[in-house]
Computed example of a mutant assay.
Amino acid sequence: MSETHTSPVVLDVWCELQCPDCHQALEDIRALRARYGDRLEIRLRHFPLEKHKHSYAAAQAAEEAAEQGKGWGYAEAVLARTADLASHGEKVLLEVARELGLDAEEIDTALIDGRHTLTVDADHAEGKAIGVTGTPTYVIGDERLDGGQGQEGLRERVEEIADRLLAQG
């Protein structure tokens, strides 16, 4: 008797941590997590936008937070403070790290030494290559859904695709 092992469906969320639309999208992401659990792997992908001057640093800080075991938690906490980040800059990134019990000094060092620059640049380049123009953008299966144009009905669309892909095994 063979046990069927189905790998999770992957949902890439192209996100920018100074983006109010990405903050609004968190509700959908939490609902998807609750509905699918480990059958849906939700990956944070970075797509910093030039119009938000702290978004690139925020993406790097999120990568360092992920190395410390709190990538999504950190991203969500930063997204909850997009206005703070816009007005107070990178110190907000370190405040959030401290609040979450992360090593803020290491995050600060990572921002200085640029150790996560390549990861952020690679995400951005891949996003551009597949047609991401704004955030949030969701990629599931071979479909790209642009949440930057409005998020009405997006979660339902992601669920339809996820259900179809999971049914295919």
Rank of each mutant, 00 (worst) to 15 (best):
S2K: 13
S2M: 13
H5M: 10
T6R: 08
T6H: 12
S7G: 07
S7I: 11
V10H: 03
W14C: 09
E16N: 12
Q18E: 13
C19Q: 00
P20N: 10
D21L: 09
D21A: 08
C22H: 01
Q24H: 13
L26G: 09
E27S: 13
D28L: 02
I29V: 13
A31D: 13
R35N: 12
Y36M: 13
G37I: 09
H46L: 07
E50P: 01
K51F: 11
K53H: 00
H54Y: 04
S55Q: 06
S55A: 12
S55C: 04
Y56M: 02
Y56I: 12
A57H: 01
A58V: 03
E63W: 13
E64L: 04
A65E: 03
G69V: 08
K70V: 07
G71R: 08
G73D: 12
Y74T: 10
E76I: 11
A77K: 02
V78N: 04
A80Q: 06
R81G: 10
T82R: 10
T82W: 06
A83L: 14
A83D: 15
D84S: 15
S87H: 10
H88Q: 15
E90Q: 07
L93Y: 09
L94N: 05
E95W: 03
V96S: 04
R98W: 09
L100T: 05
E105I: 01
E106P: 11
I107F: 03
I107E: 06
D108K: 15
D108Y: 05
D108G: 15
T109V: 08
T109F: 04
T109I: 02
D113E: 11
G114R: 07
R115Q: 10
L118Y: 08
L118G: 15
L118H: 12
T119W: 05
V120E: 05
D121T: 09
D121P: 03
A125L: 12
G127P: 09
G127T: 08
I130G: 08
I130E: 01
G131I: 06
T133D: 03
G134H: 07
G134D: 07
P136F: 02
P136M: 06
T137W: 06
T137E: 11
V139Q: 03
G141F: 13
E143S: 14
R144W: 08
R144T: 11
D146N: 00
G147K: 02
G148F: 02
Q149T: 12
Q149G: 12
G150K: 05
G153N: 05
V158P: 04
E160A: 09
I161C: 02
A162W: 02
L166I: 04
A167W: 03
A167D: 07
G169V: 14
G169K: 14
G169Y: 10
